[in-house]
Nucleic acid binder design. Sequence first.
RNA 1: GCUCCCAUCGUCUAGAGGUUUAGGACACAGGAUUUUCAAUCCUGCAACACGAGUUCAAAUCUCGUUGGGAGCGCCA
Length: 492
Amino acid sequence: MKEVRVRFAPSPTGDLHIGGVHTALFNWLFARNQNGKFILRIEDTDEIRSSSKSVQIILDAMKWLKFDQDEGPGIESKYSPYYQMKRKEQGIYQKYANELVSKGFAYPCYCTCQEIDKVRKKSQANKLPSKYDKKCRYLTLEDKKQEKNKGKKAVLRFKMPNCGTTVFIDLIRGRVEFDNSLFDDFIIMKANGVPTYNFACTVDDYLMEITHVLRGDDHISNTPKQIHIYNALGWQIPEFAHMSMILGSDGTRLSKRHGHISVLEYRNEGYLQEALVNYLALLGWSTEDGRQIFNIEDLKRSFSIKRCGASPAIFDIEKLLWINGEKIRSKNSEQLLRLFIDWVRYTNNEKLIEGWDIKLLQKAIFLEQEKIKLLKDIPFLVNFFFIENIEYHEEAVSKILLSSKSRDIAELVLNEAIMRFTKYQYDFSALALEEYARNLAKEKNIKTGDVFHPIRVAVSGRTHGPSLFHMMELLGKDKIVKRIAATIKKFF
RNA sequence: GCUCCCAUCGUCUAGAGGUUUAGGACACAGGAUUUUCAAUCCUGCAACACGAGUUCAAAUCUCGUUGGGAGCGCCA
């Protein structure tokens, strides 16, 4: 059995977003599942739009997502380099372009963009497929010389067959068939000597011995073109698998308003790498048992192309959020603290937690754990543990402390509480505190809730938060007494 | 305009001719639990796009229609 070799081949022309990550993920999972190689190749042949900044984004994203590469930028191997422009400098594409010309599979074309535009528009107007008229295909040697003498630079076009069909077996979709007469003689080398996508991609996939081309279904119609290049050069054709694409919530192409933002934005928001990966794995892939939550090792073990679906999926941020919460809840308190600190550093939010005691922070996060959906929720959820003068939420004051119904009871409870807390040496454990509160309720013949709620507001300023007594235990006697006293002073 | 791809609850999906009153998950609604918010558990809501055909039998196979997506660049 030949070793599986797959690649993720993004073009560095902007942010890497969900669709790209989805493609990368499936390739990576397939490689890991098959004990094969995962290769990263940068397709930077668009000189105008490519940027080193975008390359860095891709590299950073791959690192965050933990898609480890067996080969790629920065790794030397018999297949390197992994940037197409570097490969171009080595004359790799020119060599095969020359071969195609000499074998009669490609020819120079001197037509201008304007001429071709006209031809295309005309055929579209005549309800024909929009394509180039292949004028230069039939140029004589003499014609070519003349054009050259005019100083015109030629592009190289590939001769597609005029008749017959091109068929390939897609691992996800089965048999896909195209009528050859529909195809253009597409350009393989631009006038500036840079290869175009279909050509560079094919040459590199061959040279890098890619066994499976796993990509988005927007590439289906490129496949026959590439197949003809493989055939012309006498190369073995790899397996093709076209995955379904991810659409926005209204079923149209994913755009910014659908959350189609740089994958690193998800990191900023406080999504966990494993949550994003888990969620994306569920788009266009499933297991028989309908399992939803996977860790990375599970995914590597169970992934298969056979269980990939062909229909497009709509990106659902609600489900991602749920998975993120699931992942967060599955952490122990050290792991969660670590994750949060990493997020703080990554987002340059150190100021948010300045002066906070790290041990107390860990415990506070633990108390709020089940409420956390995003790492960025944490500061708000726990900040009242650290702030000297707590902020009273308006609703808490009006409903719990000062409403005509609750006012007297709240005042009584708080006065009682501070009196006893100050006077007696209470054990400030959650258990003892709860016992105290329940006794007070019984003694004064008031509902437990009427005791608990004012205390909660007095010590946290909020109507909701963690388990009251665990929260108080963590706060400690001094803070509790201080805060209750301050509350009485302020409102009664 | 031409070509290709796709079509099961609002969303992600299971489903390979009879095991299906179409299963699971998110979301939503209700309930239980609880000092609050969550979390958890239980219940409910909710789908085979349409029309022909093949067959004893179709969500499943075929064709057509409709809808959606993609491609048709000296972009990748």
